[in-house]
Amino acid sequence: MASDRIFGLITLITAVAYIAAATQIQTNFFSGEFLPKLFPLLIGAVAAICSLVLVFKPDPDPEWPASRTFVSMGIAVFVLAVYAVMLSPLGFLLPTMFAAGILSFQISLRIGPAILSGLGLAVGLFVLFKYALGLGNIVAYRIPTVEKLWNAITVLIPFVGH
């Protein structure tokens, strides 16, 4: 019950914000005054109605995992985000090793297999991508400058990055 209500409320607020943003869409002579806004406004309206239905007629709650699991999923998201910004300045091998290892540990909760899959996946996938498939923009490793690392990290900090 509560989960659907909360989700409905979130989507309702998003829908209202979406409608508000849609009314502000810039138009010019070529597009006409109203046409670029029409469809976004319709979508926002339908979404708002559906959200209201969810708020007033919610389904039973799903089985949510323990809060500990949410922490570990949060860690996974963080690891993936760092991986995403480090792939370019550090090259493929090092970030993949760490990211794959940590994710593997989170699934199996064992150190040995985690190290094994981190090393194995980093090397194995690199060989696969670079030599078997010939993907161009995969680089084994890069030695980054401090500035580049800092730039990459600031991406993840709201309002500092770009």
Binding site: F92, A99, L103, S108, L125, A152
Partner: peptide, 24 residues
């Protein structure tokens, strides 16, 4: 085992999307 499969799939997804646009 899932502990090698899922990280592998995730990394393949990352490389695939990364090679499309090269953007973080």
């Amino acid at each position: 085992p899932a502990w090698i499969l899922l990280p592998g799939v995730t990394m393949i997804s990352f490389v695939g999307i990364f090679s499309l646009s090269g953007s973080y």
